[in-house]
């Protein structure tokens, strides 16, 4: 008789290479965000941006077993989702720099990055904007008899928009292959979930729409991977939608205009001790999938990718001023 496998879900379920690649992408997300922040501080990028530092496990573990045919809808805090779904950081940086080589040809910027080829239907400047779109994407899959699922990322703040409730209801009524992934980082801008939301756990809202709802530690890679795995399997089997709530935290302010008056330094520091990347790295090492030198090499490779991405963006051409109305309509 074989012993039960007590290792964490991700370790016992996925190939070591896939897990090492996931760690690399998590580093890439972190370094990308830091690189973006740095470019912004040095005045190379204008506008604003919403950084997902501290939320890397939620993005990466959620996208772990999705294919390029599977879709995601993302949010204003979407850089991590984009990278986790397989985007190229060079084209992302190019978009930040407003370049023609960027994912949106310089028209969209940080808040609108999409990579349709890897199934990323796009970040969104409108809180809750992606929820009904994800349901529509799942409707397509069902009607067109495809097996792809759609994962809808949204924040805790979005769960108070009417669109959230309308979307979950339709997804359930029509039994659509969609997984709603709430990244609950405790705040919608300055407003805590306690001050904005009538239920303690957003996953409780799943019950109103007759779908499974689960809350997990969003900084625990394996916990997220397992919850999403179950939800994706259910969606692919034609059994309908689920709601997964990843409890996490954003280390940085909401955006570049945040004075952090609504939370304490202690709270931020406490969450920083639960660094999702450090935890996943330690887990891989503990289970023999990696040693320290290997992990350092992965981290260095992520930094190299990030730096190459910034270089590509810098040397890329800007859009032509005469083409300001290009891409408004289809071209012949």
């Amino acid at each position: 008789m074989t012993q039960p496998d007590n290792r964490p879900f991700a370790i016992r379920t996925y190939a070591p290479d896939q897990l090492r690649e996931a760690l690399k992408r998590m580093y890439l997300i972190r370094r990308f965000e830091e690189g973006a922040e740095d470019c912004y501080t040095r005045g190379l990028i204008h506008g604003t941006m919403h950084l997902s530092i501290g939320q890397e496990a939620s993005a990466m573990a959620t996208c772990l077993e999705l294919t390029d045919d599977d879709k995601i809808t993302s949010t204003h805090r979407g850089h991590g989702h984009c990278i986790a779904k397989g985007a190229d950081v060079g084209r992302m940086f190019a978009e930040f720099f407003g370049k023609e080589t960027g994912y949106c040809h310089g028209r969209g910027g940080s808040m609108h990055i999409a990579d349709v080829k890897t199934g990323n239907l796009g970040a969104n400047g409108i809180v809750g904007g992606g929820l009904p779109i994800a349901v529509g994407s799942a409707l397509s899959a069902k009607r067109l008899c495809k097996s792809d699922v759609t994962v809808c990322f949204f924040g805790d703040g979005a769960n108070n928009e009417g669109a959230f409730h309308e979307a979950l209801n339709m997804a359930a009524v029509w039994k659509l292959p969609v997984v709603f992934v709430c990244e609950n980082n405790g705040y919608g801008m300055s407003t805590s979930t306690a001050r904005s939301t009538a239920v303690k756990h957003i996953s409780e809202r799943a019950a109103s729409y007759s779908m499974p709802g689960v809350t997990v530690d969003g900084n625990d890679f394996s916990a997220v991977a397992e919850a999403v795995h179950i939800a994706v399997a259910r969606a692919r089997a034609g059994d309908g939608p689920s709601l997964v709530e990843n409890l996490t935290y954003r280390w940085r302010g909401h955006s570049k205009s945040d004075r952090n008056r609504y939370r304490t330094k202690e709270e931020i520091e406490e969450w920083m001790t639960r660094d999702p990347i450090a935890r996943f790295r330690a887990e891989l090492i503990a289970h023999g999938l990696l040693d320290d030198a290997g992990a350092n090499a992965i981290e260095a490779a992520a930094i190299a990718d990030m730096e190459a991405g910034i270089e590509f963006a810098k040397v890329s051409p800007s859009p032509k001023l005469s083409e300001v109305t290009r891409y408004v309509y289809a071209e012949n």
Binding site: E95, G98, G106, P319, L321, V328
Partner: peptide, 16 residues
């Protein structure tokens, strides 16, 4: 304004 959504690129934005 130009017959387009407001673009992100700063030069395009100004030109719009």
């Amino acid at each position: 304004a130009a017959d387009a959504p407001v673009p992100y690129n700063p030069d395009l934005e100004r030109a719009s």
